[in-house]
Design a protein around this nucleic acid. Structure first.
Lengths: 305, 305
DNA sequence: ACCCTTGGATTAGTTTTCCTGATCCACCCT
DNA sequence: AGGGTGGATCAGGAAAACTAATCCAAGGGT
């Protein structure tokens, strides 16, 4: 199991692949003499000739023909792995859940790209898989501040709070059958961002309403879609005041109970990353930039409570 | 697809596998400083740290953990291929058909081994496959001098002639129903070394006997077994005078027609090898030795005709 | 038959890489 | 606090790889 000189192997592989020493020398940016010597070294090491020399070019021997594919394959795998690693150095891989991504992150990313063109962003808009954020696949993620069972080596840095209050289309708060008291909610469809209905449960825990539970209503795959459903009058969503700010400002959604705002028990929306990742310069740049952007929302939230 | 420095990769692989630079340095027979430098070179090349340095030893980063198995696998494949090539340098791979092997080659090989302990022989006793002698698998082979469809790059070097004459157990040539004239063969079972019965057809072409054809008789997988069947009185084999010489001398077989000896149309038993193989020193040594051994039989044959 | 081109081998001398050995440093363990 | 372990660093020297020039053998073209 003693490995031949690796550079000689590389030279042979190039020569065999090209069918000539000159072409190989060209690829390796050396002279043909260097290739010739490398091949000779390798032949001396394994003890069998790998090329049959003719006046006009070389031809692989049986032994050489056996060796070539192994080397081409091995070097290919190595090059591929090295490339993947290099991508880590330049690319910043981000994972962000749908609503936060489409409503908060993406609108801000263009400015980041303009300021830091040297960092190539690769955003995945999705929930974290069953195992949560995986350091091997993503450099940073957006998630809750608190999450049961999160790996202890993963650190989070809070961005802005999650403020919850029911939100609905303006038409619902007008006319006869208006939505003005919590009890009125029983007459409307509740819109849930998850099947477990934690959104409404949390709010109803903070502000109980007679006989009202979170059990009823329609379920959506994420908060963005539940919010959009509320905009088109399908029901009342448990709005995230940061993420649905635009609809509130444009009058597409209204808060029927603006003094009944509670915070998610999962804490703030946060940047999460493996302990070591924070030392990575591109992660530091991104984190700093994102925190500056989030500071605006954080201040807005403080004025709401 | 630019490959990192290969020696740095090797150093990293050893360090990662051992979990420490000192152990790696030990394996590579260098100092730990050298390993440290190699790893640093590699890290600079791919742009990401591969080890997390602690006061007490190192630990792979996510990136390093991704790279290690690729390298271990790639180097393993290379080492394996290199080993196989090295075996070609020291081993002499021979293929020889059964009768020639057991009756001629093997009895002589022990002497060769004693004279040339530096050459490791690997003998395969079998017929050549459908494609004939394959240079990729065997250095030299024993075969007929002439063989239709043999690759033109394969050269043969004749060893000794194939002399054919019927042979049978002594009892058959004695007593009443004796085997003394060719016509008497009709009363005995013919023993064939192949299903196509070329052995007897060849001899009957040379020495026709009234109404006698090679169509009848028992078939054996090879000449050795057909000859052994003749010794125990199962019938008359078309004996190869070189290969059944021992039985003839010990009186276990007799030639009922000692003046009716013909040569095989396939020419002599020969050493065959790919054109280039003959330049290989160990092939040359073997070939010279075998030809010297065959010269004895060649001379004996000359006196028989 | 001649020359010319092509492609590899060889070699002396230089550049580059690699390694050593010493020293330094950080931390753990007692 | 101090000894021990494991890695980082650096100057100097050994080893390797490379270049450039030259040589050589075999086709191909005229």
């Amino acid at each position: 199991m003693k490995l031949p000189p690796l550079n000689a192997l590389k030279a042979f592989e190039a020569a065999a692949r090209h069918g000539g020493f000159i072409a190989a020398a060209d690829e390796l940016c050396v002279t043909r003499g260097a290739v010739s010597r490398h091949v000779k070294t390798l032949e001396a090491h394994v003890g069998v000739p790998l090329f049959r020399r003719h006046a006009r070019g070389v031809e692989l021997t049986e032994a050489g023909r056996e060796l070539l594919p192994v080397l081409t394959n091995a070097f290919g795998q190595i090059a591929e792995a090295a490339d993947r690693l290099s991508e880590r150095a330049t690319d910043l891989r981000i994972i962000c859940p749908p609503a936060t991504s489409i409503r908060w992150l993406i609108p801000r990313l263009e400015a980041f790209r303009a300021e830091h063109p040297e960092i190539r962003l690769r955003l995945t808009t999705d929930f974290h898989g069953g195992d949560g954020y995986v350091p091997a696949e993503y450099d940073v993620g957006f998630s809750f501040e608190f999450w049961p069972g999160r790996h202890p080596e993963i650190e989070n840095r809070p961005l802005f709070p999650i403020l919850l209050s029911p939100a609905c289309a303006p038409a619902m708060t007008e006319g006869e059958k208006t939505l003005s008291r919590p009890q009125d909610l029983a007459r409307f469809k509740l819109l849930h961002e998850t099947a477990d209905r934690t959104d409404w449960r949390t709010w109803l825990d903070a502000f109980p309403a007679d006989g009202l539970t979170a059990a009823s209503g329609d379920v959506f795959p994420n908060l963005d879609m539940a919010t959009r459903a509320a905009v088109i009058g399908a029901g009342v969503v448990m709005g995230d005041l940061v993420l649905c700010r635009e609809e509130l400002e444009r009058g597409l959604l209204r808060l029927p109970f603006p003094d009944r705002i509670c915070r998610s028990p999962n804490g703030d929306i946060s940047l999460i990353a493996h302990r070591d990742k924070w030392d990575d310069p591109k992660v530091r740049v991104f984190s700093d930039w994102i925190h500056a952007a989030a500071a605006v929302d954080r201040k807005r939230c403080a004025s709401l409570l």
